[in-house]
Design a protein around this nucleic acid. Structure first.
Lengths: 251, 251
DNA sequence: TTAATAGTGTCTATGAGACAGTATCAA
DNA sequence: TTGATACTGTCTCATAGACACTATTAA
């Protein structure tokens, strides 16, 4: 976790009369690139004393008691250090904590899911020149090992995203505005891994009322489509049904 | 946070080269009592140095690096110290952390929602003789002040519960087994604050397949009802629709 | 028989999915 | 005109809600 605070202490703070766990914040940033769902990973430094040197991990690290006002501010700081994200949607995924997840001792992490468009994103390799890269979220098993318990965290993030895509407008936060309804439908289909009906998709999105028209967008040699923006970027819309309400009722 | 570790240190553990936040775990235990949703609260000790003396707070406290294997184990320990819960359903609610939420310094908490039947529950006042009590979850504003940011956490827990009740089998975890479908429906109606149709409720619950028959249960001077148990106590069932798919479409 | 609650059947409205058809652009 | 994509209409089917009806117990 490069860039974590090295200041020996902070202000006049009495040390606790008992051992404290480490507190970290990690971020799973999703985007859509090249027709596939991707997550951002950062390579662990090879500095002596750092665990899992050279392995890929989620961007994140220790809470800085002096710089971070709260958990969300910490998450934003961790992410903006790796990439110039302008406005991402943040949502808490959960907490992981225990004796064994970090070789340095008992630690707990607060994990955020972040969603952003990949268009204008530039990956910065930060001051410590760590490597940062997008990894396609495959269907089956993950690519190589990840540091700490980050493979489990990433899997949980993917599971949560897939589940919520069934009944929320989350994929809209993965697109650059303004976007068209066919683009949005493609985002849904990429994450769900299955095709959706065009007609019902459109009525569903428009009836939910979370989109605002933003002028038409020219296609390439075809009919232009209406562009849309998200009305409220702070919260996704929630649909009253999941997509596949239909079940295979085989006798 | 009574009962938190007072051991000066733990094993041979190097102190961190930077200031660490405090790490706590808090639990929002819900139950149904006297026809209303209740949450468990514990009174803060009046020991000198403890913040918010005498105020009500969520049961919880510092992670004990020596005793707690992970976050969930810590949550179970915090809860079983206050009440003899046999088997409660646990689910992570989220994390709260920041500079100002605890006057002692930067702290973060991992909050769990727990659901249990109130029938056999006996509230223990623990070794420190702290007071523990059920509080009805009112519709409007909360009762008195709560310690820390626990009023906001409790509000978030209620909001999460109300939201998930629309499309999950969570209320079943608030009942003692075996329970009947009318009892389950009453639990739903109490949390949702509105009546549900009997017929559609029954088909919905039975079709979801999360219930197992457990013999009939005699009523008092009326027709006995079928008793049910939860098939899988580790995870709730998820329905493909919310209850109120119907919207008021006034022109 | 009555009271009380458990459980079922029947009708209707809603909306998702299937899919055919129309609209609008460039070349 | 063709090709390509955007968008709409029409049909069907599943199911939630409304509500009337039947079932089973004790007194």
């Amino acid at each position: 976790m490069p860039g974590h605070p090295r200041t020996p202490s902070a202000k006049a703070r009495r040390p606790a009369p008992f051992a404290l766990p480490y507190t970290t914040v990690d971020v799973v940033l999703f985007t859509i690139r090249e027709g596939a769902l991707h997550a951002l990973l950062a390579r662990r430094p090879r500095t002596p004393g750092e665990p899992y040197p050279g392995l890929w991990a989620l961007p994140g690290g220790f809470v800085d008691v002096d710089r971070d006002e709260d958990l969300l501010a910490c998450a934003r700081r961790k992410l903006s250090g790796k990439t110039g994200v302008r406005s991402a949607y943040f949502e808490q995924l959960g907490g992981w904590g225990g004796r064994r997840r970090d070789p340095r001792g008992w630690s707990s992490t607060h994990v955020y899911i972040a969603l952003a468009a990949s268009d204008g994103l530039e990956l910065r390799s930060g001051g410590n020149a760590e490597e940062v890269a997008w990894f396609a979220v495959g269907e089956g098993g993950q690519r190589g090992r990840l540091a700490f318990d980050h493979a489990a965290i990433l899997a949980a993030a993917i599971e949560r995203l897939r589940a919520k895509v069934e009944y929320t407008s989350l994929p809209a936060f993965l697109l650059a505005e303004p976007f068209t309804l066919p683009q949005l439908q493609r985002a849904y289909e990429i994450i769900l891994g299955r095709a959706l009906d065009k007609s019902s998709f459109r009525t569903r999105m428009l009836d939910a009322g979370f989109l605002a028209e933003a002028g038409s967008i020219d296609g390439e040699g075809n009919r232009p489509a209406m562009g849309y923006r998200i009305r409220d970027r702070d919260a996704p819309a929630i649909f009253p049904r999941t997509f596949r309400a239909r079940e295979d009722s085989s006798p």
